[in-house]
């Protein structure tokens, strides 16, 4: 759509700007202020310079949390994106199956995040949970509260359960926008199933898939509540992702300075990745 240039449009944006600015700018400025200072409580602060940044950048704890976070997000994307596309491809296109699939698949998205954690905690308990009990019954030694590997397995399975539907819904919406004529043409050409997917469906889904990857990246990179309730970051620190570690530092130990410095580094990383994705998305949009 060709838009007209109109600077008065700013008036329409003012309410949004004010609401978000209050909520975003003031806390962000505060975080910046804290990150350069030492606190003694009672609003007494002392200038520390870049000490906290140096400390965080060199600390094992931060490297480990960041490493875990990147590994987690990477695994999540690797599983959820192909799985989501696969399920969307096999979903019915019309009939009674469509609303049934959509309603049931959206269910996990609308459950409060701590309930998701609590639910999976109960589900995976080795003695009374269905998953834990079944795995132990068929011979695995499964206990997610004791063994780091099992904790990871449960956390990832939980996230797959929770968020794959988002990828499914997005891909399904993308697939639905393809006109039947494309498929007919492919059939006449005798194209294989793979060729149809590669040359017709995938290009059409490119836009929604970029969006799906962006959303899944953002949300899995800031994941907090579900693993906090499920494992509490444990056993040990095995599933202490960035947000969990950050809240532990800020609210648990009141190390405001280091926590603020860590927040900023965290925020910069998210900002960079999101900018890259956003630019790519806009680039695609301009082309199509």
């Amino acid at each position: 759509m060709n838009k007209t240039i109109n600077q008065k449009a700013w008036f329409f944006v003012v309410p949004v700007f004010v609401l978000v600015a209050f909520n975003a700018a003031i806390p962000l400025m505060t975080v910046v202020n804290y990150s350069f200072q030492e606190t003694f409580g009672n609003n007494v602060f002392a200038w520390e310079g870049t000490r906290w940044f140096k400390q965080i950048l060199l600390s094992e704890r931060f490297h480990d949390a960041l490493g875990r976070q990147i590994a987690f997000t990477f695994i999540i994307l690797l599983i959820q994106i192909p799985l989501g596309i696969g399920i969307a491809l096999t979903m019915p296109k019309k009939g009674w199956g469509v609303p049934v699939c959509l309603i049931l698949m959206s269910m996990p998205l609308l459950i409060p995040w701590n309930v998701v954690g609590a639910m999976w905690n109960i589900f995976a308990l080795p003695d009374i949970g269905f998953l834990g009990y079944s795995l132990n019954a068929i011979g695995f030694d499964f206990n997610f509260t004791q063994q780091p590997g099992d904790a990871w397995f449960t956390t990832i399975l939980m996230d797959v359960w929770h968020w794959t539907s988002l990828v499914v819904l997005l891909s399904y919406a993308g697939l639905n926008s393809i006109q039947p004529a494309y498929y007919q043409a492919a059939e006449i050409d005798g194209a294989s199933r793979w060729a149809t997917f590669r040359y017709i469906e995938l290009p059409k889904m490119k836009k929604v898939l970029t969006l799906a990857i962006l959303l899944r990246f953002m949300d899995s990179f800031m994941i907090y509540t579900e693993p906090f309730v499920l494992t509490g970051g444990g056993p040990g620190n095995a599933t202490a992702f960035l947000s969990i570690d950050l809240v532990k530092m800020a609210l648990g130990q009141f190390d405001l300075g280091p926590a603020a410095a860590m927040s900023l580094i965290y925020f910069f990383i998210v900002l960079l990745v999101c900018w890259v994705f956003y630019s790519l998305m806009m680039k695609n949009e301009v082309k199509s």
Binding site: M29, T30, N33, N43, W47
Partner: peptide
């Protein structure tokens, strides 16, 4: 403002 802990350095940055 007191809890925001302003310093001249960060203020000048903004």
């Amino acid at each position: 403002f007191s809890w925001m802990a302003w310093t001249w350095q960060t203020a000048s940055f903004f």
